[in-house]
Amino acid sequence: MKKALTSLPGVLLATGIALLAVLIESQLPGHYIGSAVLAMFIGIAIRAVYYNETLFQEGIKFTSKKVLKFAIILLGASLNFSIILQVGSRTVFVLIFTLLTAFGGGFILGKLFKVNWKLSNMIAAGTAICGGSAIAAMAPVIEAEDGDVSYAISATFVFDMLMVIAYPIVGRLLFLSDQFFGYWSGTSINDTSSVVAASFAFSERAGEIATMVKLTRTLAIIPTVIIFSIIYYNKQLKEPNRRKEKVSVKGLVPWFIILFVLMAGLNTAGLFPADFSESLRSVSRFLMVVALAAIGLKTDIKLFVKTGWKPFVHAMVLSSLVVVVSFAVVALIIG
């Protein structure tokens, strides 16, 4: 009871920021900036102006860790493996190339720019899959620092804002078909809201295709977090201090990821009515906003300066590579 009371101020602050972010998003034209990104930036700004660590610390810690994991579990309820059958093998073919480009290119760029592997791979996951959601899902699996989470989301967000403006213009200049544009934007723009904004700005048909392709791409969160949980587990085994502590096998695949996959499986089996699945998705999205507000509150702006420009360039170059590879592969299969 006492712990709950000490956590309450921080939880309420993060929730208040989340509600404000949702309100701001609803008033913005085009919904180009998602509430999750807004909440994180508001949290960072509040910390820079005034932040009572003693009062808010417990609640912010709870929200950024526990609430985030719960949001990820509920996110599984909105995923459906059968969507792969709807979009066909062509989408999967393009996605394989973009995923390989993002993670392969991310590894090389991370080494080139000397970016720590956690930040580098979160940028790669955000670029490859679905921006902030993928980064947020991956962060607890690899025990990423909050500053790195904020930096990764910020870097991918900036590129998305540029793409929302540039994609429809480029699409029209190149006389792309609705189908081509839908596949291209759905497989190469990071965040779901940005995909929707850019593709529907091009045409209604392109928007429908891009949304379906993007939903398929989101499924890549599942194998990605499982693979990185195994990689991180093996990294822990190689650390001398960790060996002494006897790294638990339970950490091989975290419990919340197992529940996340289970929820996706139940939804695919049709055990969740459509309305119920949509409700859980809405709750998950809001809790994700609350968690990212807490992560913002834990992020000192000085960390961005300390981290430097290299991870930002890493994200820009990697996203550009994915855009080019996606275009080339879509051209190959669609013509």
Score class of each variant (00 low, 15 high):
residue 5 L to I: 06
residue 7 S to R: 09
residue 9 P to S: 03
residue 11 V to C: 08
residue 12 L to I: 13
residue 15 T to S: 14
residue 22 V to N: 04
residue 30 G to L: 00
residue 47 R to E: 07
residue 47 R to G: 11
residue 48 A to S: 15
residue 48 A to G: 00
residue 51 Y to F: 15
residue 54 T to L: 06
residue 55 L to S: 00
residue 56 F to Y: 15
residue 57 Q to V: 04
residue 60 I to G: 11
residue 62 F to E: 08
residue 64 S to N: 02
residue 64 S to I: 00
residue 68 L to T: 09
residue 73 I to H: 04
residue 73 I to N: 04
residue 80 N to M: 03
residue 81 F to A: 15
residue 82 S to Y: 00
residue 82 S to W: 00
residue 86 Q to T: 15
residue 87 V to N: 05
residue 93 F to R: 12
residue 96 I to G: 10
residue 98 T to C: 10
residue 101 T to G: 12
residue 112 L to G: 02
residue 118 K to V: 05
residue 120 S to L: 02
residue 121 N to A: 00
residue 129 I to T: 05
residue 130 C to T: 04
residue 145 E to D: 13
residue 146 D to N: 09
residue 150 S to R: 05
residue 151 Y to F: 14
residue 153 I to P: 12
residue 153 I to C: 11
residue 156 T to H: 03
residue 166 A to Q: 00
residue 166 A to G: 05
residue 173 L to Y: 14
residue 179 Q to D: 13
residue 184 W to V: 08
residue 187 T to S: 15
residue 188 S to G: 05
residue 190 N to E: 06
residue 191 D to P: 03
residue 200 F to D: 02
residue 202 F to T: 06
residue 205 R to Y: 13
residue 210 A to E: 04
residue 214 K to I: 08
residue 214 K to S: 08
residue 215 L to D: 02
residue 218 T to S: 13
residue 220 A to G: 01
residue 231 I to R: 13
residue 235 K to R: 15
residue 236 Q to E: 13
residue 257 I to W: 03
residue 259 L to E: 10
residue 265 G to R: 10
residue 277 S to Y: 04
residue 277 S to M: 06
residue 278 E to T: 13
residue 279 S to V: 08
residue 279 S to K: 13
residue 281 R to V: 01
residue 281 R to F: 13
residue 284 S to Q: 03
residue 286 F to D: 06
residue 300 D to Y: 07
residue 301 I to P: 00
residue 304 F to V: 12
residue 310 K to D: 03
residue 314 H to S: 02
residue 317 V to M: 11
residue 324 V to R: 10
residue 329 V to F: 13
residue 330 V to H: 08
residue 332 L to C: 15
